[in-house]
């Protein structure tokens, strides 16, 4: 990755992480907690973007991976007395496993069928959590506070833990999309039949990227459980599958920075509008419509098209 664009790209990504690290020293308490939360959610969007932005597969059921990470971590800590780090690792493993198993048959479909199948299985996963409520506490959820290390209460620890998870997934995704494998993904996105004709095993490629995407979503879910010490079924509901789609589209699908930006913008948009209206579904729905109609590339996509064609 040496040379002109490579160095710039590297500098851009490391610069973002450095900026996020520096931000904790200048931000007030409110934006400090918000940013910690945004980084966790942005991890989710980064994972989502691998699938939507770079492979062209739209999922409406990603909340199941988020929830798999959340419950994998939460239940093992709650019942088995796992520590924070083993719990997190197990959460990510659960999400990876679920994504692999789900992808193995869901990827037999394509296009619109794939979309519908993801949405249905997302809902089935949600219902499964409700069905086994004796274990999962269903709708009501459960609290991890007293089972987690006391240090996690500290806002600085929260912030930097969130930053660590985010940075790992963010850099991994940036590296991945610039690797030869990433090029194959883009080829699949642009024309799957041709990619297949060129001899690529597109099914396996899609399965790998779906698994990675699910794993990152699970990492976000597990981090959420640990940092905000609550595990509940509402995180598996459909709205939580729509959010990463919205964030990614807003920031710009198929750009590495887009999902991060989209998550932050949307968070503050909802937060800001809550001051004068509680109709936040208008904000969500309106944003989706406006994006599709007038702004299909999203923020970073537009920047790339107009200003800086080199950004990944």
């Amino acid at each position: 990755m040496k040379g002109g664009p490579g160095a710039r790209v590297l500098a851009l990504h490391l610069g973002l992480i450095a900026a996020l690290f520096a931000a904790q020293f200048v931000l007030g308490a409110y934006h400090h907690t918000n940013l910690a939360r945004i980084m966790v959610l942005a991890t989710y969007a980064v994972g989502y973007n691998l699938l939507l932005g770079y492979t062209g597969l739209m999922s409406l059921g990603h909340a199941m991976f988020f929830a798999a990470g959340m419950y994998g971590a939460g239940l093992s800590i709650y019942y088995l007395g796992f520590g924070a780090i083993p719990g997190f690792a197990l959460g990510v493993a659960c999400a990876l496993g679920l994504a692999l198993a789900f992808g193995a048959f869901a990827l037999r479909t394509s296009g619109v069928s794939f979309l519908i199948v993801t949405m249905m299985f997302g809902q089935a996963f949600y219902l499964t959590i409700l069905y086994f409520n004796q274990v999962t506490f269903g709708d009501q959820g459960f609290i991890l506070s007293d089972r987690l290390p006391a240090a996690l209460v500290d806002p600085d620890v929260k912030y930097n833990a969130a930053l660590l998870v985010f940075a790992a997934c963010f850099l991994a995704s940036a590296f991945l999309v610039r690797s030869p494998f990433g090029r194959i993904l883009v080829a699949i996105r642009e024309n799957e039949a041709r990619a297949r004709l060129l001899g690529y095993d597109t099914y396996t490629c899609k399965l790998v990227v779906l698994t990675l995407s699910g794993g990152m979503s699970g990492a976000a879910g597990a981090a959420y459980a640990l940092l905000f010490s609550y595990v509940g079924a509402s995180f598996a509901a459909i709205l939580n599958s729509i959010y990463p789609l919205l964030w990614t589209l807003l920031g710009g699908a198929g750009t590495t920075l887009g999902p991060v930006l989209g998550t932050g913008l949307m968070f503050y948009l909802v937060d800001f509008t809550s001051g004068w209206t509680s109709a936040y579904l208008f904000v969500v729905g309106g944003a989706l419509l406006v994006l599709v109609l007038f702004f299909p590339l999203g923020v970073m996509g537009t920047v790339r098209a107009k200003l800086a064609p080199w950004i990944p």
Binding site: M58, L60, G111, V112, L115, I242, L245, L249, A279, Y280, L281, F282, V284, G285, G286, A287, L288, L289, L291, V292, L293, P296
Partner: peptide, 21 residues
């Protein structure tokens, strides 16, 4: 197809909110 899906998701939330309000 995909744009339609995103747009109709947007419509879904607009309609829900309109009925709620």
């Amino acid at each position: 197809p995909e744009s339609t899906i995103v747009a109709t998701i947007g419509l879904l939330y607009l309609l829900q909110q309109a009925v709620l309000s």
